[in-house]
Every structure is written in C-alpha cells, then in structure tokens.
Write a protein that binds this DNA or RNA. Sequence first.
DNA 1: TTCTTTGCAAATTGTTTGCATGCTC
DNA 2: GAGCATGCAAACAATTTGCAAAGAA
Lengths: 146, 146
Amino acid sequence: MSHELDTAFAIRNTGMRFTSQRLKVAHALRHSVGHRTVEEIRDIIGADSLPLSTVYRAIRALKTSHLVAEVDAGGRAAYEWVDAGQLHHHLVCDRCFAASPLAVEIIERLHGEIRAATGFEAAPEHFMVHGICLGCRGFRESEAAR
Amino acid sequence: MSHELDTAFAIRNTGMRFTSQRLKVAHALRHSVGHRTVEEIRDIIGADSLPLSTVYRAIRALKTSHLVAEVDAGGRAAYEWVDAGQLHHHLVCDRCFAASPLAVEIIERLHGEIRAATGFEAAPEHFMVHGICLGCRGFRESEAAR
DNA sequence: TTCTTTGCAAATTGTTTGCATGCTC
DNA sequence: GAGCATGCAAACAATTTGCAAAGAA
C-alpha cells in the first residue's frame, strides 16, 4: 500500500545514500502523472521545503541511478519516474505543455521501421511527439468557428 | 545560382524588414548541412560580426516567419533552414548529436496512427527521434566485441 | 518621416558549484 | 568516525530586454 516504502526501497536498492530529500523528490515524481519541472517538484514538496540546488542534486543522483529520466518540456528540463523496465512515451502539447501517454505498440512499430530503413537505433525511453492535444485543438477550432 | 538572392527574396517575401544582419543569419543557416547553434551561426558569419543578441533576434524573426525551425541539440537550442513547405524530421544521435534526415512517409504514417488513436495532432515540423546512430552503434559494438 | 531593427550593456532564467556543517553508513 | 549530502550564497551559461541611435519602407 505504501508507495513511500516502495520508493524508499528503490532508492536504497541503487546503493546511493538514502536521505529525506531524495525521498521527497523521488516520491513527488513517482506520484506525478506526466513529467515535472524542477520548480514543480519543489512546489509539490512544499515551496520552501528544499532549496532548488538540492532538488537538482537529488534529481541528478536519481537520474544516475536510472530511477528518473530527463525529458525536454518546451526548452526546460523535466523529469519523470521510470518504473523498472517500463517504456515511456508521450504526446506533448505545444500549447498547454501537458503530456499524455502514447501506446507502446505505435512507437515500437515506428522504431522497427526506422531501424529497417536507416539502421538508427531509437532510444527505448523518453520518446516524445510534439503537437497540439485534443483539448487545445478543440479550443482553437471553436475559437475559429465564431 | 546565387543562393544569396534566393535567401534575400525569401526574407523580403515574408513581409518583415530586410536587413543585412538577417540576411547573414539566414544565409549561414541555409548553407549549413544540419542544424546550427546560435554561437555556430555567429562564428560562420564571423566571430565579431554581430552581437549575439542580434543573432538571437534575427533568428526569432526568421522563426516567426517560418523560414527557420528550432530544434534541440543536446540541451541547447539549434536552428535550421526550412525550405518552403518541406517537412523536416530527424534522427538525433544521443552520442554524437548528429542529426540525419528521416523519410517523411514513416512519420506521416505515425502521425496518422496517433491522430486515429488519441486525437492528438502531431506538429508537422520539428519531429525528432533520439537514439544511437548507425555509426555510433557500430563503434559501440566493435568496442564490446574486443 | 515613420516605424522597425540594431548595438550595447544590463537583466533574467535555469542550472551548477564552493565550502562549512550535518547526516548516513 | 569517514565520507557523501545538504544549505546557503555566489558563479555560470544561455537567452532576453531597455534604450538611444541607425536603417528600411
């Protein structure tokens, strides 16, 4: 039940030192739906709970241990929890910057095509497609329809 | 023959004001194979030819006019010339940061699948797939084989 | 002549680092 | 007790902005 224990275990399991700061950061990411910016993480934890530098360092440690992955959200770096062995693909809206998940099969097919055509081995994680999400698209169209 | 005239025409054609600075920046990008960083552009033009702020502003203007597109080269922003109406997709190597082109059909198929599955409208430009290119992959494999 | 763009320098933003102190192993 | 992690403040790099002068339409 306690995801917090899972997270704590995951951190300890990597061999790195276990600290409350790292737990907070990891926990915040683990319970976020999409990816989170450093500032968002800090706000989730509590605005004045940790200095940003510590959040950055905790993230770097977690990233080195492959517990979190870095993605690019409109120029800024963002991070997400990586469940063991699970692939992560996203549709990222250029308007509202929200990320929604993308079915794995679609991406696997794409990767296969790319490999066959060019020999390029697409990275299994961090795959993102930019564009306009359904919500923003609907909004734009209803705007235009007026 | 003179690509420079083409470039000048392209700039004038957008309706924005034509300046030597914008021409230099556009020209540098138009004759670059892959994408170029702001500093690379400045160096192509001539190290002390333009202040960086002007290069940034020129790029922003060209980007607004859809003459150049912004891509992400390992954290930093990079830019490339967009030939009229032509789609740009890339395979970006996470090891050597080189970008190679990707066949348009493959991406169009992907976009169709995504639209059908989620309603998300993928952006027609700037599409990138990260991974390991054939060259770096070969290198790694020959390293491992020793 | 009017309105936009440039150049310079200073300001911002996002991220990293040095160092003394605190906490984990 | 030894060594990594934290907190704070200061350093950085990349990019943007304010303002007066120069240039394009």
